[in-house]
Amino acid sequence: MIKLENINKTYFGAQPLHVLKGINLEVAEGELVSIMGASGSGKSTLLNILGILDNYDEGDYYLAGKLVKNLSENQAAEFRNKLIGFIFQSFNLIPFKTALENVALPLFYQGVNRKKRIMMAMEYLERFGLKDWAEHYPNELSGGQKQRVSIARALVTSPKIILADEPTGALDSKTSAEVMQILREVNASGITMVIVTHERGIANLTKKIVHLKDGVIESIEENDPDKMDFTKEIK
């Protein structure tokens, strides 16, 4: 599903900063992968490249068998719309749209008609127990509710892959556990998932942990999340 070959990325700010230094990584369809590493190690940068939210300088990135390089904005939009669902630490919901409208928005860009959009969005909200919150605006929702709305939004287009940057970063441990439970279920339904986190407890719930350090992959750790005891705190 994802194949990275020698990905390099430099930020040309006041001082050029070589953030990713030759990343090689493969993620197969249906995998649940986490990326761990210290702050500033380049986790978000890597994930943004995976999501075509940012470009890279060197190497090749294949997404679903297609080379993602020098895409036009329209092609990139197409990829993001059809293949990828995003979940962010800060939710990135549009504040003046209701939960329902936020979830329905990606379908608008797919050209789905209004009635069908609302119906599908409602279906996903219901699935995450948010039926009663459909008409609420983001600022009327708790952190956990907001993250569930953004998960619903990521899933509503039935993407092949979910990219999550610190999805539990703004949540308390109990809510984090609930969100992770949802993400694991989503993965179990066959959707590939890459989660960036710096919490070991979160990474432990994934099947493959990629350790990133100073822009290089230090190690890739296989993990069996089912060994974990869910009655315990995950942090």
């Binding site: 329209n74 993001r80 719309n81 549009i94 860009y109």
Partner: peptide
Amino acid sequence: TNEIGIRKALGAKPRS
């Protein structure tokens, strides 16, 4: 600008 970024992440084309 933020809203525009979010819309782009969700697959909005520049023209739209």
